[in-house]
Every structure is written in structure tokens, then in C-alpha cells.
């Protein structure tokens, strides 16, 4: 069976710097895979390559067996990869509900003419989008903010709203870039719960995370990057005991 996402020797260079260097990994369908690593390890760059914000310099990203390496980001989204951002990138001036409805763009098709004439098909589509959006807002727990400007939401809820927005594109693979960043322990516990529920919906989750509690709590598979290179790849237990990982995080053991 082909894995949902397969990266083969993905490399991204910025001038002389290889931010991601020859990373190969697979994400199995239905898994919750975590990408961890110290700051500057190239985790977000790796995400940007997968979601095609910028294409990999070399290597290949295959999603459901299709080469998506050089496709435009919106095409990748349509194929079923959605993401959130490390620095929240909501449409701040739009309401929370509008944010989520906007993400329905690639699953809807009403054009300018249909919208101006308010054709029945367009009205039906709008009503459907709104229903889905409200359901998603409730799913992530920010329903009470539906009509508020996204930029005015509390920090944690903005992160949740971003997840709802990503879910609205009907992805099969969800990329979460540090979803628990800046959250207190209680909030991150809620987030773990939310990711579990997303996983139960049948989505595959790939996340970058620093909170070890979150990572160990939910991931079924972990990929460790350091200086752009993959240094370990395996189950949480295996990774936890990997000497290279310990070294990357804590420094070399001084045995004298």
C-alpha cells in the first residue's frame, strides 16, 4: 500500500544553507506523526516544502502517489493537504465564521456570474458552506466567536480557529505547525484532545511540536530533524531512547 505522504530526499537550499537536507520519510494513513527537533532544525521549512509554499530544491514529495513537489499551493490544498501556521495567519479583519467559509473556496465553485444572479445552486452552496463552517467552529470549540473579527479572538482560540479553517478545506492530511505554542498546560491538554478527535475523524495528522507532553501523548510516529538532517525516525519509545536524539537535545554526554 502506498503511504499517504512520502518524501524522498527532500532538500531545500537558501543560497549555501541547506535548511532541509536530504530528508526522506513516510506518513502512514491514519497516523499522528510528529516532527520534532531543536530550534532552527528546518521543521517549518520542511512543512513549507510539503505544502508547496516553496518547492523543494531537489527531491520529491508524493501525496497519495501523486508528485506534488512543484504544484501550486492551492492545487496541493485541493488534493487534500491543509495546514496551519506557526505564526498565526488568520484573515484578521474577517469574522471567525468568514475565515472558515473562505477556506471552503476549493470545495465550492460558484463563480462571479452565479454570485451576482444569486442562482439557486449558489445559494445552496453558500448555505451548505455556512453549515459546515458552523459545525467546524463548534468542533474546535470557538462557536461563540463566530461573528467576531478573527484578530480579536483570544490567542488560544485563534489557534483553534486556524485548525477549523484548515479542516474546512476537507483535507486528508492536516499539517499543524506548533499548535500548542504559547498555550498553558490546560490549553495544551485540550489541544491534545482536539487532535485525537481530528484523528478519529479519519484524518492523518502531521505536526511540529515542542511540548514533549503533547508529542508523546498523541503521536504514533516521530521524525526528528536537526540542522536540516533527519537523525531519527520511529515510535515515540524508540525515539526517546535514541542516543542521537538525546545528544541533539541535551548535548554530547561528557564521559571523562
Amino acid at each position: 500500500m502506498t503511504p499517504l505522504l512520502e518524501c524522498r530526499s527532500v532538500t531545500k537550499r537558501f543560497g549555501g544553507l541547506a535548511a532541509v537536507d536530504d530528508v526522506s520519510c513516510v506518513v502512514e494513513e491514519g497516523s499522528v506523526t510528529a516532527v520534532i527537533g531543536p530550534n532552527g532544525a528546518g521543521k517549518t521549512t520542511f512543512f513549507n516544502c510539503v505544502s508547496s509554499i516553496y518547492p523543494a530544491t531537489s527531491g520529491e514529495v508524493r501525496f497519495e502517489g501523486v508528485d506534488v513537489t512543484r504544484l501550486a499551493p492551492h492545487v496541493v490544498t485541493r488534493l487534500g493537504i491543509a495546514r496551519t501556521f506557526q505564526n498565526i495567519r488568520l484573515f484578521r479583519g474577517m469574522s471567525a465564521l468568514e475565515n472558515v467559509i473562505t477556506a471552503r473556496h476549493c470545495r465550492t465553485k460558484a463563480g462571479v456570474v452565479a454570485s451576482l444572479l444569486r442562482l439557486p445552486s449558489q445559494r445552496r452552496e453558500e448555505a451548505e458552506s455556512e453549515a459546515i463552517a458552523r459545525e467546524l467552529l463548534a468542533f474546535v470549540g470557538v462557536a461563540k466567536w463566530a461573528d467576531s473579527a478573527a484578530g480579536s479572538l483570544p490567542y488560544g482560540d485563534q489557534r483553534r480557529l486556524e485548525i477549523a479553517r484548515a479542516l474546512a478545506t476537507e483535507p486528508s492530511l492536516l499539517l499543524l505547525d506548533e499548535p500548542a505554542a504559547g498555550m498553558n498546560p490546560r490549553e495544551s491538554q485540550d489541544l491534545v484532545e482536539l487532535i485525537r478527535r481530528i484523528s478519529k475523524r479519519g484524518l492523518t495528522v502531521l505536526l511540529i511540536e515542542h511540548h514533549m507532553k503533547v508529542v508523546m501523548g498523541i503521536s504514533t510516529h516521530i521524525v526528528v530533524l536537526d540542522h536540516g538532517v533527519k537523525i531519527a525516525d520511529g515510535t515515540p519509545e524508540a525515539v526517546r531512547n535514541d542516543s542521537k536524539v538525546i545528544e541533539a537535545y541535551l548535548g554530547k554526554e561528557d564521559v571523562t
Binding site: 501550486a72 490544498t77 484573515f91 479583519g93 473562505t102 474546512a168
Partner: peptide, 15 residues
């Protein structure tokens, strides 16, 4: 509106 607010995010939302 999404384009105005954040072009990168708009792309990633399938626009």
C-alpha cells in the same frame, strides 16, 4: 478579502 488579509494563507486555503 482573504488575499488582502494574508496572501500566503489564502493560497494555502486553496485560493
Amino acid at each position: 478579502f482573504a488575499l488582502r488579509e494574508d496572501e500566503t494563507a489564502a493560497k494555502c486555503m486553496g485560493i
